[in-house]
Computed example of a mutant assay.
Amino acid sequence: MKRAFDFLASLMALILLSPIIAIVSYKIRKNLGSPVLFRQQRPGKDGKPFQMVKFRTMKDAVDKDGNALPDAERMTDFGNKLRNTSLDELPELLNVLKGEMSLVGPRPLLMQYLPLYTAEQAKRHEVRPGVTGWAQINGRNAISWEGKFKLDVWYIDNQSFALDIKILFRTVKKVLFKEDISASDHVTMPEFKGSNSEK
């Protein structure tokens, strides 16, 4: 039932939102240049890697050695607007359509985090990662990694279709009111270095 809902809902959303997707694509090309899309390998269900796709929000800026500058220096006002409205997440509907992601589930993080999880935290990979999730409507980037993972595991233990619908509706509210967008003084969440590093 969950997969069928994901497929039909993401297909419908892509069709209905196609004008917005086209406009955002044009604006990104105009403000940030090519490529319009940002692709990165992320761990999916059971830790299996897939290519997650999002709208690009940062400019290509490097130091004298050719290394990418910190996120805060590459982020633009335009990119911030995309993130604050969650418009940068729209291409992930393609990942949902392909069965690599779900509309609701723990957010897909970075591949290098996999060996850093505790056995309990690793449970977040028992389901497909989501465009939104329980952690996203209960703090998003405004909570610690430990808090985020506890919420992810709670979702795994209590998942249901009714809970997914509740999360989707609350996600819309979060987006409309731009709540919990980023963590304190970080443009994005600080790097996760393992649970012991947070104590």
Rank of each mutant, 00 (worst) to 15 (best):
I15Y: 04
D180R: 04
A22D: 02
N31M: 15
Y117W: 06
A9L: 08
R128I: 05
P91A: 10
D63Y: 06
P91T: 02
L8E: 08
E126M: 13
I15M: 07
D88P: 01
L103R: 00
E126Y: 05
S195F: 04
K27D: 07
N80D: 08
W134K: 04
N95D: 14
I143E: 12
S18E: 10
R29T: 10
I20D: 07
Y26P: 04
G47Y: 07
E191C: 11
D88G: 00
F55W: 03
V62S: 08
F78G: 08
R29N: 09
D71R: 10
M58R: 03
Q51M: 15
T171N: 00
N67P: 10
G47R: 02
F161M: 14
I143Q: 13
N67H: 14
R107L: 12
L32P: 01
E198C: 14
E198P: 07
W154F: 11
R170L: 10
N158R: 08
L17Y: 02
S34I: 15
M12I: 13
R56A: 02
G33R: 15
N67C: 09
V62R: 12
M111R: 02
K45Q: 15
E92P: 06
P108Y: 08
A68G: 12
K148I: 09
F169W: 09
A119L: 04
T188K: 15
E191R: 10
Y117G: 01
F7G: 03
L11T: 14
V104L: 05
Q121I: 03
F177V: 10
A13D: 05
Y113W: 10
D77F: 13
Q159I: 10
S86I: 01
L116E: 03
E92G: 02
R170N: 06
L176V: 13
N95K: 13
R74P: 00
L32G: 12
A68T: 10
L82N: 03
S182N: 11
G130D: 07
V53F: 08
L116I: 14
L14I: 06
L90W: 00
T132P: 06
Y155W: 06
G66D: 08
I23E: 05
D65E: 15
Q112G: 04
S18A: 11
F192D: 06
V36W: 05
G47P: 10
P49Y: 05
I167F: 02
N158S: 14
L14H: 08
A4N: 13
G194S: 12
F38D: 01
L116T: 09
N196I: 13
R39G: 12
N67Q: 12
G47V: 06
I20P: 05
L114V: 11
Q121C: 06
G47N: 12
A22W: 08
F38W: 13
L93G: 00
L11R: 07
T171C: 03
R29M: 15
N138T: 11
P91V: 04
L69T: 03
K64C: 08
P115R: 11
R170W: 05
K150Q: 12
P106Y: 01
K178P: 03
D63W: 01
D65N: 13
S195Y: 09
S34A: 15
P108H: 05
V153G: 00
S34P: 11
E146C: 13
I137E: 01
K178S: 13
S102F: 12
M52G: 02
T57K: 00
D77N: 15
R124S: 04
V104Y: 04
L94Q: 08
R83E: 00
K174F: 03
K81G: 06
K178A: 13
M111I: 13
